[in-house]
Design a binder for these strands. Structure first.
Lengths: 71, 71
DNA sequence: GTATAGTGTAAATTATACTTGACATATTGT
DNA sequence: ACAATATGTCAAGTATAATTTACACTATAC
C-alpha cells in the first residue's frame, strides 16, 4: 500500500541502484523494488540485512505508525 | 538459532501468555512460540504488530547485532 | 541512431511463513 | 489425586515471500 520512501531515500543517499542493494543483501532486484513500491511484507531478516547495508535501524526504515482510519 | 528472550521478557512484563499475544496480533500460538524459540524468520508486519501490542520498538525486540564469527 | 543502466511490472515456479490439530510435559490450585 | 493453564514440539496443509525470466519505458552516453 504505502511506498517505502525512507528506504528509497537511504539507498539514494549511498548512490546505490536497486540491483546493487539486491546483490548486497542476496535477493533479487524485483524483491527490493517490491519493498519500495509497498504492498509487500518482507521478512525481518531481509529487513535487518537491508538496514545493515544502508547503515540504518529497523525503526528508521521499517517502522509504521498506527493509522487512525485504517481499513 | 538464537532465542528471542527480549520478546519473551516483554511479554512476561505484561503477564501475557503466548496464546493471548497470538490472539492480540492475529496469529497462532505456535507462531509466537516459534519466534521465541528462534530459528524463525517472521514477516515485518507481524513483528510490528507484536511491537505495538507489547509497547516496544522494532529495534528493541528484533534487531540483531552483526556477529563476528558468523558462519 | 543504438547501446547501456536504472526502474516498473507481469507470469510461473520454488521456498518458506503460518495454520490446524494433536500430543507431551510441567506447574499451579482445588 | 484431579483439573486447568502454559509451554514445547511434530506433521500435514495453505498462504504468500521470493525467485526467475521477460518486456516496456526512461534517461544518459557514445
Amino acid at each position: 500500500m504505502a511506498k517505502n520512501l525512507r528506504l528509497k531515500s537511504a539507498r539514494a543517499a549511498l548512490d546505490m541502484s536497486q540491483q546493487r542493494l539486491a546483490d548486497a543483501v542476496g535477493v533479487s532486484r524485483q524483491t527490493i523494488n517490491a519493498i519500495e513500491i509497498g504492498d509487500y511484507n518482507p521478512t525481518i531478516r531481509l529487513c535487518i540485512a537491508i538496514c545493515r547495508v544502508l547503515g540504518k535501524s529497523l525503526d528508521e526504515l521499517f517502522w509504521i505508525e498506527e493509522q487512525e482510519g485504517q481499513k
